[in-house]
């Protein structure tokens, strides 16, 4: 967790941000915090999808929020599963 915060702090350092020309050049430090982009991606997809699929308009924000959480939860669960498989389980197998 501290590592992640350090990475974010470095990417969002004032000197880095002040030198950034938004929309003209890529955002600074994306290589380190690209995984956070799942949040706006899930929200955008959910909002546009539920806007066309929900019958009752008053439920669109709630449905979109629920779908966003489902997407993020599924991605996190996949990440945990793959971490356990690749980092924990596979090294326990005999080499030959």
């Amino acid at each position: 967790m501290n590592l992640s915060l350090d990475i974010l702090a470095e990417a969002l350092a004032p000197t880095t941000i002040l030198a950034w020309k938004p929309f003209l050049q890529p955002a600074p430090g994306v290589d380190r915090w690209w995984w956070l982009l799942i949040v706006p991606t899930a929200i955008g997809i959910s909002l546009a999808y539920k806007a066309t699929r929900s019958v009752e308009l008053a439920q669109v924000p709630r449905d979109a929020a629920r779908m966003s959480l489902q997407i993020i939860g599924a991605i996190v669960a996949s990440a945990v599963f793959l971490y356990l498989l690749v980092i924990v389980l596979l090294p326990m197998l005999p080499a030959e």
Binding site: G44, I45, S46, L47, A48, A51, V60, P61, A64
Partner: peptide, 9 residues
């Protein structure tokens, strides 16, 4: 609503 979602992306 649709506009918001697409513009966020």
């Amino acid at each position: 609503y649709a506009m918001s979602g697409i513009l966020i992306l």
